[in-house]
């Protein structure tokens, strides 16, 4: 069983480009549809929970599914299977990258790609703002975080902890009233 779990997540990890959200439908197809390790509802629950935890969504989701399917051995097999492909692929690229990078044409290629990366991140931000909704709280908190990091050179972790604490106390107060 753990071997089957490992191979399934290794396969999923090898072929999904585009991060966590691109991986979820494929995990769902394999785990719920093909292997029937989890029911539909249980799978959706697992996403709701893992989404609120730190770490890459796909790897957390794999760990959760692995544990539910085959206990600790299953969790270890799933996590290892999900991490291995990207580790191996990037390792091979990293080994050859420096020598490959010396060609002038590669330099031109990356001069074009770098601004594209900015556009991709800006687009992701734009989509996220649309999904979360523009309201006073969202905008003021995010602008405060932005300014604290850029102008006051604050560590991003400090802003995360501060906002988490703020969320905790504001919501608790609201519940009490």
């Amino acid at each position: 069983m753990p071997l089957d779990i490992f191979l399934t997540f290794f396969k999923i990890g090898s072929f999904t480009i585009g991060g966590g959200y691109a991986m979820l439908p494929i995990i769902q197809r394999e785990v719920v549809g093909n292997k029937k390790w989890l029911g539909e509802e249980e799978f959706l629950d697992s996403i709701a929970v893992t989404n609120s935890l730190p770490g890459p969504l796909a790897i957390n989701c794999a760990t959760f599914v692995g544990y539910r399917t085959a206990g600790y051995a299953g969790a270890a097999a799933a996590a290892l299977g999900a991490v291995m492909p990207s580790f191996l692929i990037i390792l091979v690229i990293a080994i050859f990258f420096a020598s490959f990078r010396e060609y002038p044409i590669v330099d031109y290629v990356f001069s074009g790609i770098r601004p594209a990366v900015v556009a991709l991140i800006a687009y992701a931000l734009f989509k996220l703002v649309k999904a979360m909704g523009v309201n006073l709280l969202n905008i003021s908190v995010s602008i405060a975080v932005l300014l604290l990091i850029l102008l006051f050179n604050l560590h991003p972790i400090v802003t995360i902890v501060a906002c988490g604490a703020l969320g905790f106390f504001l919501n608790r107060k609201e519940k009490k009233q």
Binding site: L125, I139, V141, S142, A144, P156, T159, A165, G167
Partner: peptide, 16 residues
């Protein structure tokens, strides 16, 4: 509650 607080911070992190 904690996650609700972190969520808008994520926008600021990505913008930075």
């Amino acid at each position: 509650w904690v996650i609700k607080g972190i969520r808008p911070a994520v926008l600021g992190l990505i913008a930075a």
